[in-house]
């Protein structure tokens, strides 16, 4: 079994979580860029749906 040097695992974890953060930010930026290209009508449709999303868990139990 290969010996793991002290701190090496932690370093990998830090890189992993940084990578996740970068991917997440890139994804959010892509979504925002895509949203910005939509016409006003589609934006209104999306907003109309998103406005209700926070209530969906409570509605599920209704």
């Amino acid at each position: 079994m290969a010996a793991v040097k002290k701190g090496e695992g932690k370093g990998k974890g830090r890189i992993g979580s940084k990578l996740k953060m970068v991917v997440l930010l890139a994804l959010m930026a892509a979504i925002a860029a895509r949203y910005a290209t939509l016409d006003a009508s589609k934006k209104r449709f999306i907003k109309h749906i998103l406005k209700q999303v926070p209530y969906m868990p409570a509605r599920y139990f209704a």
Partner: peptide, 11 residues
């Protein structure tokens, strides 16, 4: 229960 109240009021 509170969750039903929230759900119902949201419609």
């Amino acid at each position: 229960p509170w969750i039903n109240r929230v759900g119902m009021k949201s419609y």
